[in-house]
Amino acid sequence: MGQSRYLDRPQPGPLWTGQRGALTISGIVQVVLAVGADAKLSGLRPHRLRHTYATRLREGGADVAQVQALLGHASLDTSARYFRAGTAEQAAVVDRVFDPRSAAVWREKHTDLWLELRKCLRAC
């Protein structure tokens, strides 16, 4: 059953089962560790997958309330941590805002400032 169909009509019982029934938390961790090792991602844990899922939702345009609902957070503050931009994202925003096609004149007039700003954002 696909995730969206499961969310529309949750079924009773365990989401994941193994040979001996419902997987325990440690069983899920072991499965994720094994799959991560096969993919050359040593130490991969379920929480890292959850964090990546939330980050991809945000990058895909989901708002904080949507992330809250999908992750089951009780508080928007918990979901808001995924909306803090890192330095690479900040640099990308500057590059996007000052796109070469739309900001060429500004950059010509302020080349030193532009280069210093980019250097600072990438070094932070």
Score class of each variant (00 low, 15 high):
1 M>R: 00
2 G>W: 03
3 Q>A: 12
4 S>P: 14
8 D>Y: 11
8 D>N: 14
8 D>P: 07
11 Q>P: 01
11 Q>D: 00
12 P>M: 00
17 T>C: 07
18 G>L: 07
19 Q>C: 13
21 G>T: 00
22 A>M: 00
22 A>I: 00
22 A>Y: 00
22 A>E: 01
23 L>V: 03
23 L>C: 01
25 I>L: 06
25 I>R: 13
27 G>S: 01
28 I>L: 04
30 Q>I: 06
32 V>E: 00
32 V>A: 01
32 V>T: 00
35 V>Q: 14
37 A>F: 10
39 A>W: 03
39 A>I: 04
40 K>P: 05
40 K>E: 11
40 K>H: 14
40 K>N: 11
41 L>P: 11
42 S>T: 09
43 G>H: 08
46 P>W: 04
46 P>C: 02
47 H>P: 09
48 R>D: 03
49 L>R: 00
49 L>W: 03
50 R>Q: 02
51 H>A: 15
51 H>S: 14
56 R>L: 07
57 L>R: 10
57 L>N: 13
59 E>Q: 10
60 G>N: 05
63 D>F: 08
65 A>D: 06
68 Q>V: 04
68 Q>S: 09
69 A>N: 07
69 A>R: 06
70 L>S: 07
74 A>Q: 09
75 S>L: 12
75 S>H: 11
76 L>C: 13
76 L>I: 14
77 D>F: 10
77 D>V: 06
80 A>F: 05
82 Y>T: 00
82 Y>A: 01
83 F>C: 10
83 F>K: 02
84 R>M: 11
84 R>E: 11
86 G>D: 15
88 A>H: 03
88 A>K: 04
88 A>F: 03
90 Q>L: 12
90 Q>M: 08
91 A>Y: 11
91 A>K: 02
92 A>T: 09
92 A>L: 13
93 V>D: 06
94 V>C: 02
95 D>Y: 03
96 R>M: 12
98 F>Q: 13
99 D>Y: 05
99 D>F: 15
100 P>K: 00
101 R>Q: 11
102 S>C: 08
106 W>E: 08
106 W>Y: 10
107 R>F: 02
108 E>I: 02
108 E>V: 02
108 E>N: 08
109 K>D: 08
109 K>N: 08
109 K>A: 15
110 H>E: 07
111 T>Q: 13
111 T>R: 12
111 T>P: 07
112 D>V: 01
112 D>C: 00
113 L>Y: 04
115 L>N: 09
116 E>L: 08
116 E>R: 14
116 E>T: 07
117 L>G: 04
119 K>I: 10
120 C>I: 06
121 L>M: 11
123 A>P: 13
123 A>Q: 15
